[in-house]
Nucleic acid binder design. Structure first.
Length: 481
RNA sequence: UCCUUCUUAGCUCAGUUGGUUAGAGCAUCUGACUGUUAAUCAGAGGGUCCUAGGUUCAAGUCCUAGAGAGGGAGCCA
Protein backbone atom coordinates (compact mmCIF):
# COMPACT_ATOMS: atom_id res chain seq x y z
CA UNK A 1 0.00 0.00 0.00
CA UNK A 2 1.31 3.42 -0.94
CA UNK A 3 2.09 5.70 1.97
CA UNK A 4 0.97 9.29 2.16
CA UNK A 5 3.47 11.60 0.49
CA UNK A 6 5.92 13.36 2.77
CA UNK A 7 7.74 16.53 1.75
CA UNK A 8 11.51 16.27 1.50
CA UNK A 9 11.93 19.21 3.86
CA UNK A 10 10.16 17.26 6.61
CA UNK A 11 11.75 13.96 5.72
CA UNK A 12 15.28 15.31 6.04
CA UNK A 13 14.75 16.23 9.69
CA UNK A 14 12.79 13.07 10.47
CA UNK A 15 14.47 10.59 12.76
CA UNK A 16 11.99 7.77 12.18
CA UNK A 17 14.50 5.35 10.74
CA UNK A 18 12.97 2.21 9.32
CA UNK A 19 9.63 3.83 8.54
CA UNK A 20 8.11 3.43 5.07
CA UNK A 21 7.49 6.71 3.31
CA UNK A 22 6.62 8.10 -0.10
CA UNK A 23 8.30 11.08 -1.73
CA UNK A 24 7.60 12.69 -5.08
CA UNK A 25 9.89 15.09 -6.84
CA UNK A 26 12.17 15.87 -9.75
CA UNK A 27 15.48 14.15 -10.36
CA UNK A 28 18.51 16.40 -10.08
CA UNK A 29 21.23 13.80 -10.75
CA UNK A 30 21.68 10.06 -10.91
CA UNK A 31 25.00 8.27 -10.56
CA UNK A 32 26.27 4.84 -9.69
CA UNK A 33 27.09 1.49 -11.21
CA UNK A 34 25.48 -1.85 -12.02
CA UNK A 35 24.86 -2.69 -8.40
CA UNK A 36 23.81 0.58 -6.85
CA UNK A 37 22.41 3.92 -8.03
CA UNK A 38 22.07 7.20 -6.19
CA UNK A 39 19.35 9.61 -7.19
CA UNK A 40 19.30 13.17 -5.85
CA UNK A 41 15.63 14.10 -5.63
CA UNK A 42 14.19 17.57 -5.04
CA UNK A 43 10.54 18.53 -4.55
CA UNK A 44 10.91 22.28 -4.08
CA UNK A 45 10.06 22.22 -0.38
CA UNK A 46 13.71 22.88 0.47
CA UNK A 47 16.93 23.49 -1.37
CA UNK A 48 18.25 20.18 -0.05
CA UNK A 49 17.78 16.91 -1.90
CA UNK A 50 16.94 13.52 -0.49
CA UNK A 51 19.30 10.81 -1.69
CA UNK A 52 17.43 7.81 -3.04
CA UNK A 53 19.45 4.59 -2.84
CA UNK A 54 18.55 2.13 -5.58
CA UNK A 55 19.65 -1.50 -5.36
CA UNK A 56 19.89 -1.97 -9.11
CA UNK A 57 19.27 -5.78 -9.42
CA UNK A 58 15.87 -5.33 -7.73
CA UNK A 59 14.59 -2.96 -10.40
CA UNK A 60 13.57 -3.16 -14.02
CA UNK A 61 16.34 -1.87 -16.29
CA UNK A 62 13.96 0.10 -18.52
CA UNK A 63 12.47 1.83 -15.50
CA UNK A 64 15.89 2.91 -14.24
CA UNK A 65 16.78 4.20 -17.70
CA UNK A 66 13.89 6.62 -17.53
CA UNK A 67 15.24 8.15 -14.33
CA UNK A 68 17.17 11.03 -15.83
CA UNK A 69 17.79 14.64 -14.84
CA UNK A 70 14.47 16.47 -14.82
CA UNK A 71 12.18 13.44 -14.65
CA UNK A 72 9.36 13.39 -12.09
CA UNK A 73 9.32 10.25 -9.97
CA UNK A 74 7.48 8.82 -7.00
CA UNK A 75 9.53 6.72 -4.60
CA UNK A 76 8.30 4.35 -1.96
CA UNK A 77 11.05 3.44 0.44
CA UNK A 78 12.51 3.01 3.87
CA UNK A 79 14.13 5.92 5.66
CA UNK A 80 17.60 4.93 6.82
CA UNK A 81 20.64 6.53 8.35
CA UNK A 82 23.03 7.24 5.52
CA UNK A 83 25.85 4.78 5.01
CA UNK A 84 27.82 7.39 3.13
CA UNK A 85 29.02 10.81 4.17
CA UNK A 86 27.48 13.98 2.85
CA UNK A 87 23.97 13.47 4.16
CA UNK A 88 22.52 12.14 7.39
CA UNK A 89 19.46 10.35 6.04
CA UNK A 90 18.58 8.66 2.78
CA UNK A 91 15.73 6.70 1.30
CA UNK A 92 16.20 3.03 0.41
CA UNK A 93 13.83 2.56 -2.52
CA UNK A 94 11.39 -0.35 -2.55
CA UNK A 95 9.26 0.78 -5.49
CA UNK A 96 9.79 3.59 -7.98
CA UNK A 97 7.25 5.03 -10.39
CA UNK A 98 8.27 7.36 -13.18
CA UNK A 99 5.54 10.01 -13.29
CA UNK A 100 6.97 12.00 -16.16
CA UNK A 101 10.07 11.41 -18.23
CA UNK A 102 12.49 14.17 -19.33
CA UNK A 103 14.42 13.36 -22.50
CA UNK A 104 18.03 14.09 -21.48
CA UNK A 105 18.93 15.06 -25.05
CA UNK A 106 16.30 17.79 -24.99
CA UNK A 107 15.91 18.82 -21.34
CA UNK A 108 17.67 22.20 -21.18
CA UNK A 109 18.85 22.02 -17.57
CA UNK A 110 22.00 19.95 -17.33
CA UNK A 111 23.48 18.70 -14.09
CA UNK A 112 26.04 21.50 -14.14
CA UNK A 113 26.23 25.20 -13.50
CA UNK A 114 24.32 27.43 -15.89
CA UNK A 115 24.70 31.16 -16.39
CA UNK A 116 21.92 33.41 -15.10
CA UNK A 117 21.56 34.81 -18.63
CA UNK A 118 20.89 31.35 -20.05
CA UNK A 119 18.39 30.56 -17.31
CA UNK A 120 16.62 33.86 -17.95
CA UNK A 121 15.82 32.56 -21.42
CA UNK A 122 14.49 29.41 -19.78
CA UNK A 123 12.54 31.27 -17.11
CA UNK A 124 9.75 28.67 -17.28
CA UNK A 125 12.16 25.99 -16.04
CA UNK A 126 14.57 27.94 -13.88
CA UNK A 127 12.45 27.30 -10.77
CA UNK A 128 14.00 23.84 -10.87
CA UNK A 129 17.48 25.15 -10.16
CA UNK A 130 18.91 25.65 -6.69
CA UNK A 131 19.45 29.36 -7.15
CA UNK A 132 15.98 30.22 -8.40
CA UNK A 133 14.09 27.91 -6.09
CA UNK A 134 15.94 29.63 -3.22
CA UNK A 135 15.14 33.09 -4.59
CA UNK A 136 11.46 32.34 -5.04
CA UNK A 137 11.06 30.68 -1.66
CA UNK A 138 12.56 33.84 -0.17
CA UNK A 139 10.25 35.95 -2.32
CA UNK A 140 7.28 34.17 -0.80
CA UNK A 141 8.65 34.70 2.70
CA UNK A 142 9.22 38.40 2.05
CA UNK A 143 5.67 38.87 0.74
CA UNK A 144 4.34 37.10 3.81
CA UNK A 145 6.51 39.30 6.05
CA UNK A 146 5.03 42.44 4.47
CA UNK A 147 1.53 41.43 5.45
CA UNK A 148 2.61 40.21 8.86
CA UNK A 149 4.40 43.46 9.67
CA UNK A 150 1.54 45.73 8.74
CA UNK A 151 -1.13 43.49 10.17
CA UNK A 152 0.66 43.45 13.54
CA UNK A 153 0.75 47.25 13.46
CA UNK A 154 -2.97 47.55 12.76
CA UNK A 155 -2.61 48.70 9.16
CA UNK A 156 -5.34 47.73 6.68
CA UNK A 157 -4.42 46.10 3.39
CA UNK A 158 -6.06 48.22 0.71
CA UNK A 159 -6.59 47.21 -2.89
CA UNK A 160 -6.09 50.19 -5.15
CA UNK A 161 -7.09 49.95 -8.82
CA UNK A 162 -4.72 48.65 -11.47
CA UNK A 163 -6.61 50.45 -14.20
CA UNK A 164 -6.60 54.15 -13.61
CA UNK A 165 -8.45 56.99 -15.28
CA UNK A 166 -5.99 59.52 -14.00
CA UNK A 167 -2.85 60.38 -15.94
CA UNK A 168 -1.64 62.81 -13.32
CA UNK A 169 0.15 60.47 -10.95
CA UNK A 170 3.33 61.92 -12.31
CA UNK A 171 5.47 58.85 -11.84
CA UNK A 172 6.41 58.14 -15.41
CA UNK A 173 5.16 56.85 -18.77
CA UNK A 174 2.02 54.73 -18.65
CA UNK A 175 0.65 51.74 -20.53
CA UNK A 176 -2.60 52.55 -22.31
CA UNK A 177 -5.58 50.30 -21.58
CA UNK A 178 -8.00 50.26 -24.48
CA UNK A 179 -10.39 48.00 -26.36
CA UNK A 180 -10.48 50.27 -29.41
CA UNK A 181 -9.42 48.88 -32.77
CA UNK A 182 -5.80 49.98 -33.02
CA UNK A 183 -5.95 49.99 -36.84
CA UNK A 184 -9.18 51.93 -37.11
CA UNK A 185 -9.99 53.89 -33.94
CA UNK A 186 -12.98 56.24 -33.77
CA UNK A 187 -11.83 59.80 -34.36
CA UNK A 188 -12.94 63.23 -33.23
CA UNK A 189 -13.51 65.95 -35.80
CA UNK A 190 -9.97 67.24 -35.23
CA UNK A 191 -8.46 63.82 -35.97
CA UNK A 192 -7.62 62.85 -32.39
CA UNK A 193 -8.82 59.53 -31.02
CA UNK A 194 -12.29 59.66 -29.50
CA UNK A 195 -11.92 57.86 -26.19
CA UNK A 196 -15.59 58.42 -25.37
CA UNK A 197 -16.08 55.35 -27.57
CA UNK A 198 -13.58 53.30 -25.55
CA UNK A 199 -14.51 50.69 -22.93
CA UNK A 200 -14.43 53.11 -20.00
CA UNK A 201 -15.57 56.13 -22.00
CA UNK A 202 -12.26 57.87 -21.30
CA UNK A 203 -8.53 57.40 -21.55
CA UNK A 204 -7.32 54.75 -19.13
CA UNK A 205 -3.90 53.39 -18.22
CA UNK A 206 -2.27 50.83 -15.98
CA UNK A 207 -1.38 52.31 -12.62
CA UNK A 208 2.08 53.69 -11.91
CA UNK A 209 1.33 54.09 -8.20
CA UNK A 210 -1.49 53.47 -5.78
CA UNK A 211 -0.45 56.37 -3.60
CA UNK A 212 -3.18 58.87 -4.41
CA UNK A 213 -5.91 56.30 -3.79
CA UNK A 214 -3.97 55.12 -0.76
CA UNK A 215 -4.17 58.62 0.71
CA UNK A 216 -7.97 58.44 0.44
CA UNK A 217 -7.92 55.25 2.48
CA UNK A 218 -5.52 56.61 5.07
CA UNK A 219 -7.70 59.67 5.60
CA UNK A 220 -10.48 57.41 6.80
CA UNK A 221 -9.02 54.13 8.02
CA UNK A 222 -5.96 55.76 9.59
CA UNK A 223 -3.18 53.49 8.42
CA UNK A 224 -3.31 51.47 5.22
CA UNK A 225 -0.86 49.79 2.89
CA UNK A 226 -1.04 48.59 -0.67
CA UNK A 227 0.94 45.71 -2.11
CA UNK A 228 0.37 45.04 -5.75
CA UNK A 229 1.69 45.21 -9.27
CA UNK A 230 2.72 48.53 -10.75
CA UNK A 231 3.43 49.35 -14.38
CA UNK A 232 5.85 51.81 -15.92
CA UNK A 233 6.33 52.15 -19.66
CA UNK A 234 9.75 53.74 -19.27
CA UNK A 235 12.40 52.55 -21.68
CA UNK A 236 14.70 51.63 -18.81
CA UNK A 237 17.31 48.99 -19.47
CA UNK A 238 19.08 48.46 -16.18
CA UNK A 239 19.57 45.78 -13.56
CA UNK A 240 17.10 47.52 -11.23
CA UNK A 241 14.10 48.44 -13.41
CA UNK A 242 11.09 46.44 -14.54
CA UNK A 243 8.06 47.48 -16.59
CA UNK A 244 5.90 45.40 -14.23
CA UNK A 245 6.96 45.30 -10.62
CA UNK A 246 5.43 44.96 -7.19
CA UNK A 247 5.28 47.92 -4.89
CA UNK A 248 4.38 48.32 -1.25
CA UNK A 249 2.90 51.71 -0.42
CA UNK A 250 1.89 52.43 3.19
CA UNK A 251 0.02 55.64 3.83
CA UNK A 252 -0.59 56.93 7.36
CA UNK A 253 -2.75 59.66 8.78
CA UNK A 254 -1.21 61.80 11.54
CA UNK A 255 2.35 60.73 10.64
CA UNK A 256 4.92 63.43 10.00
CA UNK A 257 8.16 62.94 8.09
CA UNK A 258 10.04 61.58 11.11
CA UNK A 259 7.28 59.09 11.92
CA UNK A 260 7.41 58.09 8.26
CA UNK A 261 11.17 57.47 8.38
CA UNK A 262 10.89 55.54 11.63
CA UNK A 263 8.25 53.28 10.12
CA UNK A 264 10.23 52.70 6.92
CA UNK A 265 13.39 51.79 8.82
CA UNK A 266 11.51 49.47 11.16
CA UNK A 267 9.77 47.86 8.18
CA UNK A 268 12.97 47.22 6.22
CA UNK A 269 14.62 45.71 9.29
CA UNK A 270 11.57 43.54 9.97
CA UNK A 271 11.79 42.05 6.49
CA UNK A 272 15.52 41.40 6.84
CA UNK A 273 15.00 39.77 10.22
CA UNK A 274 12.19 37.66 8.80
CA UNK A 275 14.51 36.37 6.09
CA UNK A 276 17.25 35.58 8.60
CA UNK A 277 14.78 33.80 10.90
CA UNK A 278 12.95 31.82 8.22
CA UNK A 279 15.12 31.40 5.13
CA UNK A 280 18.56 30.55 6.50
CA UNK A 281 19.26 27.46 4.37
CA UNK A 282 18.38 29.34 1.18
CA UNK A 283 20.38 32.40 2.27
CA UNK A 284 23.38 30.21 3.04
CA UNK A 285 23.19 28.71 -0.43
CA UNK A 286 22.91 32.12 -2.10
CA UNK A 287 25.77 33.43 0.01
CA UNK A 288 28.03 30.57 -1.05
CA UNK A 289 27.02 31.07 -4.67
CA UNK A 290 27.82 34.76 -4.46
CA UNK A 291 31.22 34.11 -2.96
CA UNK A 292 32.07 31.64 -5.72
CA UNK A 293 31.08 34.23 -8.26
CA UNK A 294 33.29 36.87 -6.68
CA UNK A 295 36.34 34.63 -6.36
CA UNK A 296 37.83 36.23 -9.44
CA UNK A 297 37.54 39.72 -8.01
CA UNK A 298 40.16 41.54 -6.00
CA UNK A 299 39.66 41.54 -2.24
CA UNK A 300 38.63 45.19 -2.06
CA UNK A 301 36.09 44.79 -4.85
CA UNK A 302 34.25 41.96 -3.14
CA UNK A 303 31.03 42.74 -1.38
CA UNK A 304 30.33 41.89 2.25
CA UNK A 305 29.21 38.30 2.81
CA UNK A 306 25.43 38.16 2.37
CA UNK A 307 24.32 37.07 5.83
CA UNK A 308 26.87 39.33 7.50
CA UNK A 309 25.55 42.20 5.39
CA UNK A 310 21.94 41.50 6.39
CA UNK A 311 22.89 41.33 10.08
CA UNK A 312 24.88 44.53 9.73
CA UNK A 313 21.92 46.47 8.34
CA UNK A 314 19.68 44.96 10.99
CA UNK A 315 22.00 45.98 13.84
CA UNK A 316 22.80 49.55 12.78
CA UNK A 317 20.74 52.71 12.65
CA UNK A 318 20.31 54.21 9.21
CA UNK A 319 22.13 57.52 8.72
CA UNK A 320 19.72 60.41 8.37
CA UNK A 321 20.71 63.66 6.74
CA UNK A 322 19.16 66.42 4.72
CA UNK A 323 19.78 67.00 1.05
CA UNK A 324 21.58 70.23 1.98
CA UNK A 325 23.93 68.38 4.36
CA UNK A 326 24.54 65.74 1.70
CA UNK A 327 25.48 68.39 -0.84
CA UNK A 328 28.01 69.86 1.63
CA UNK A 329 29.56 66.44 2.25
CA UNK A 330 29.73 65.72 -1.46
CA UNK A 331 31.13 69.12 -2.38
CA UNK A 332 34.00 68.63 0.06
CA UNK A 333 34.51 64.96 -0.77
CA UNK A 334 37.74 63.62 -2.27
CA UNK A 335 36.22 62.48 -5.58
CA UNK A 336 34.61 65.88 -6.05
CA UNK A 337 37.82 67.82 -5.31
CA UNK A 338 39.89 65.52 -7.48
CA UNK A 339 37.22 65.76 -10.17
CA UNK A 340 36.66 62.02 -10.10
CA UNK A 341 32.87 62.40 -10.26
CA UNK A 342 31.48 62.48 -13.74
CA UNK A 343 29.01 65.09 -12.50
CA UNK A 344 30.78 67.49 -10.14
CA UNK A 345 28.87 69.05 -7.27
CA UNK A 346 29.21 72.81 -7.34
CA UNK A 347 25.90 74.22 -6.16
CA UNK A 348 22.65 73.53 -4.41
CA UNK A 349 19.61 72.37 -6.32
CA UNK A 350 20.70 69.66 -8.71
CA UNK A 351 19.48 66.08 -8.27
CA UNK A 352 22.04 63.59 -6.99
CA UNK A 353 23.47 61.17 -9.53
CA UNK A 354 23.87 57.53 -8.67
CA UNK A 355 27.65 58.02 -8.30
CA UNK A 356 26.91 60.52 -5.52
CA UNK A 357 24.42 58.23 -3.81
CA UNK A 358 26.92 55.40 -4.01
CA UNK A 359 29.64 57.56 -2.48
CA UNK A 360 27.44 58.43 0.49
CA UNK A 361 26.17 54.89 1.07
CA UNK A 362 29.17 52.76 0.16
CA UNK A 363 32.17 55.00 0.93
CA UNK A 364 31.28 57.74 3.41
CA UNK A 365 28.84 56.05 5.80
CA UNK A 366 28.94 52.39 4.71
CA UNK A 367 25.34 51.84 5.77
CA UNK A 368 21.84 52.74 4.56
CA UNK A 369 21.21 56.46 4.31
CA UNK A 370 17.93 58.36 4.53
CA UNK A 371 18.08 61.65 2.66
CA UNK A 372 15.42 64.23 3.44
CA UNK A 373 14.23 67.69 2.49
CA UNK A 374 15.05 67.84 -1.20
CA UNK A 375 14.65 70.97 -3.34
CA UNK A 376 11.02 71.24 -4.33
CA UNK A 377 11.91 71.58 -8.02
CA UNK A 378 13.11 67.99 -8.30
CA UNK A 379 10.22 66.38 -6.40
CA UNK A 380 6.51 65.71 -6.89
CA UNK A 381 3.66 68.18 -6.46
CA UNK A 382 2.05 66.41 -3.49
CA UNK A 383 5.01 66.71 -1.12
CA UNK A 384 4.83 68.89 2.01
CA UNK A 385 6.30 72.33 1.33
CA UNK A 386 8.74 73.29 4.05
CA UNK A 387 8.80 76.69 5.73
CA UNK A 388 12.05 77.67 3.98
CA UNK A 389 10.11 77.92 0.72
CA UNK A 390 12.82 75.92 -1.04
CA UNK A 391 12.53 72.32 0.11
CA UNK A 392 9.86 69.67 0.54
CA UNK A 393 9.42 66.97 3.19
CA UNK A 394 10.65 64.13 1.04
CA UNK A 395 12.69 61.15 2.16
CA UNK A 396 14.58 58.64 0.04
CA UNK A 397 16.26 55.58 1.52
CA UNK A 398 19.44 54.55 -0.25
CA UNK A 399 20.79 51.01 0.12
CA UNK A 400 24.29 49.80 -0.71
CA UNK A 401 24.45 48.16 -4.12
CA UNK A 402 20.84 49.01 -4.91
CA UNK A 403 20.49 52.77 -4.66
CA UNK A 404 17.03 54.13 -4.00
CA UNK A 405 14.91 51.44 -2.42
CA UNK A 406 12.28 53.65 -0.77
CA UNK A 407 10.86 56.98 -1.86
CA UNK A 408 8.39 58.78 0.36
CA UNK A 409 7.25 62.04 1.83
CA UNK A 410 5.01 63.87 4.18
CA UNK A 411 2.09 64.95 1.99
CA UNK A 412 1.03 68.56 1.55
CA UNK A 413 -2.17 68.84 3.57
CA UNK A 414 -2.97 72.50 2.89
CA UNK A 415 -5.47 72.91 0.04
CA UNK A 416 -4.19 76.29 -1.12
CA UNK A 417 -0.52 75.35 -1.05
CA UNK A 418 -1.21 72.09 -2.84
CA UNK A 419 -3.29 73.59 -5.62
CA UNK A 420 -0.79 76.43 -6.09
CA UNK A 421 1.99 73.85 -6.53
CA UNK A 422 -0.14 71.82 -8.94
CA UNK A 423 -0.66 74.93 -11.03
CA UNK A 424 3.08 75.67 -11.08
CA UNK A 425 3.88 72.14 -12.18
CA UNK A 426 1.07 71.87 -14.71
CA UNK A 427 -0.88 69.14 -12.90
CA UNK A 428 -4.54 69.35 -14.04
CA UNK A 429 -6.53 70.09 -10.88
CA UNK A 430 -9.90 69.47 -12.59
CA UNK A 431 -9.09 65.78 -13.04
CA UNK A 432 -7.90 65.50 -9.44
CA UNK A 433 -10.94 66.87 -7.71
CA UNK A 434 -11.52 63.59 -5.88
CA UNK A 435 -7.99 63.77 -4.52
CA UNK A 436 -8.35 67.40 -3.44
CA UNK A 437 -11.46 66.51 -1.43
CA UNK A 438 -9.17 65.03 1.23
CA UNK A 439 -7.75 68.52 1.70
CA UNK A 440 -11.16 70.19 1.56
CA UNK A 441 -12.77 67.98 4.17
CA UNK A 442 -10.99 67.06 7.35
CA UNK A 443 -7.45 67.44 6.07
CA UNK A 444 -4.64 66.41 8.41
CA UNK A 445 -0.94 65.68 8.50
CA UNK A 446 -0.23 62.41 6.72
CA UNK A 447 2.71 60.61 5.17
CA UNK A 448 3.62 57.57 3.17
CA UNK A 449 6.27 55.86 1.10
CA UNK A 450 6.77 53.35 -1.67
CA UNK A 451 9.06 50.35 -1.50
CA UNK A 452 10.04 48.47 -4.63
CA UNK A 453 9.54 44.85 -3.64
CA UNK A 454 12.01 43.50 -6.20
CA UNK A 455 14.68 45.96 -5.08
CA UNK A 456 14.24 44.65 -1.56
CA UNK A 457 14.55 41.15 -3.02
CA UNK A 458 17.83 42.14 -4.69
CA UNK A 459 19.19 43.25 -1.36
CA UNK A 460 18.03 40.24 0.64
CA UNK A 461 19.09 37.60 -1.89
CA UNK A 462 22.27 39.35 -3.05
CA UNK A 463 21.23 38.79 -6.66
CA UNK A 464 22.60 41.35 -9.11
CA UNK A 465 19.82 41.64 -11.68
CA UNK A 466 16.20 42.48 -10.93
CA UNK A 467 15.12 40.12 -13.73
CA UNK A 468 16.28 37.26 -11.53
CA UNK A 469 14.12 38.01 -8.49
CA UNK A 470 10.70 38.07 -10.22
CA UNK A 471 9.40 34.87 -11.85
CA UNK A 472 8.52 36.35 -15.23
CA UNK A 473 10.24 39.70 -15.80
CA UNK A 474 8.69 42.28 -18.11
CA UNK A 475 11.25 44.67 -19.56
CA UNK A 476 11.45 46.67 -22.81
CA UNK A 477 11.20 44.26 -25.75
CA UNK A 478 10.59 41.30 -23.48
CA UNK A 479 7.29 39.80 -22.34
CA UNK A 480 8.00 36.09 -22.75
CA UNK A 481 5.91 33.44 -21.01
C1' U B 1 17.11 56.40 -25.15
C1' C B 2 22.72 57.05 -24.93
C1' C B 3 27.74 54.83 -24.18
C1' U B 4 30.29 50.20 -24.17
C1' U B 5 31.30 44.92 -24.69
C1' C B 6 29.61 40.54 -26.72
C1' U B 7 26.97 36.69 -30.22
C1' U B 8 31.41 29.98 -32.59
C1' A B 9 28.63 22.42 -30.41
C1' G B 10 23.11 21.43 -25.63
C1' C B 11 26.08 24.89 -21.87
C1' U B 12 30.70 27.89 -20.78
C1' C B 13 34.40 29.47 -23.86
C1' A B 14 39.32 29.36 -27.09
C1' G B 15 40.22 30.28 -32.25
C1' U B 16 47.23 34.01 -33.68
C1' U B 17 48.61 38.60 -39.17
C1' G B 18 42.51 36.86 -43.37
C1' G B 19 45.07 30.90 -45.40
C1' U B 20 44.38 23.16 -45.37
C1' U B 21 39.46 19.14 -42.49
C1' A B 22 36.82 25.00 -36.73
C1' G B 23 38.93 23.14 -31.03
C1' A B 24 38.60 22.39 -25.40
C1' G B 25 36.00 21.57 -20.74
C1' C B 26 31.29 20.27 -19.11
C1' A B 27 26.57 17.98 -20.68
C1' U B 28 24.57 13.68 -23.76
C1' C B 29 25.25 8.53 -25.50
C1' U B 30 28.20 3.71 -25.04
C1' G B 31 31.46 0.86 -21.97
C1' A B 32 34.20 0.00 -17.05
C1' C B 33 33.74 0.33 -11.69
C1' U B 34 29.85 -2.70 -5.05
C1' G B 35 28.49 3.75 -1.39
C1' U B 36 28.49 7.88 -5.14
C1' U B 37 28.29 13.53 -3.59
C1' A B 38 29.30 18.68 -9.80
C1' A B 39 31.41 10.68 -8.84
C1' U B 40 35.72 8.79 -11.55
C1' C B 41 38.09 6.44 -15.96
C1' A B 42 37.90 5.14 -21.46
C1' G B 43 35.55 6.03 -26.10
C1' A B 44 31.75 8.12 -29.53
C1' G B 45 28.30 11.41 -31.64
C1' G B 46 27.33 16.57 -31.95
C1' G B 47 28.57 23.12 -35.91
C1' U B 48 23.29 27.81 -40.39
C1' C B 49 30.70 30.38 -36.54
C1' C B 50 23.47 35.53 -34.86
C1' U B 51 21.13 37.46 -39.82
C1' A B 52 21.66 40.10 -44.58
C1' G B 53 24.89 42.47 -47.75
C1' G B 54 30.03 43.83 -49.09
C1' U B 55 35.74 43.73 -49.68
C1' U B 56 39.18 39.67 -51.16
C1' C B 57 42.20 34.48 -54.99
C1' A B 58 40.51 33.26 -49.93
C1' A B 59 36.28 35.60 -44.24
C1' G B 60 34.63 32.51 -37.80
C1' U B 61 38.46 36.59 -38.44
C1' C B 62 37.96 42.88 -42.15
C1' C B 63 33.71 46.66 -43.54
C1' U B 64 28.24 48.22 -43.50
C1' A B 65 23.32 47.47 -41.76
C1' G B 66 19.98 44.79 -38.67
C1' A B 67 18.54 41.51 -34.50
C1' G B 68 19.51 39.71 -29.63
C1' A B 69 22.26 39.70 -24.95
C1' G B 70 25.61 41.64 -20.87
C1' G B 71 27.55 45.96 -18.22
C1' G B 72 27.24 51.29 -17.28
C1' A B 73 24.30 56.07 -17.56
C1' G B 74 19.57 58.64 -17.56
C1' C B 75 14.39 58.01 -15.56
C1' C B 76 12.83 55.85 -10.94
C1' A B 77 10.85 51.87 -6.92
Amino acid sequence: MEQKRIKIKDLLVSKEYGSEVNVKGWVRTKRGNKQINFVALNDGSTINNIQIVVDVPNFNEDLLKKITTGAAISVQGKLIESAGSGQSVELEATTIEVLGVADPEKYPLQPKKHSLEFLREKAHLRFRTNTFSAVFRIRHAMAFAVHEFFNKKGFFYMHTPLITGSDAEGAGEMFRVSTLDAKNPPLNEDGTINYKEDFFGKETNLTVSGQLEGELGAMALGEIYTFGPTFRAENSNTTRHLAEFWMIEPEMAFYDLKDNMDLAEEFLKYMIKYALDNCMTDLEFLSKRLQEEEKGKKADERSMELIEKLRFVLDNDFVRLTYTEAIDILRNSKPNKKKKFQYLIDGWGADLQSEHERYLVEKKFEKPVILTDYPKEIKSFYMKQNDDGKTVGAMDILFPGIGEIVGGSQREEDYDKLTARMKEMGVPAEEMDWYLDTRRFGSATHSGFGLGFERMMLFVTGMGNIRDVIPFPRTPKNAEF
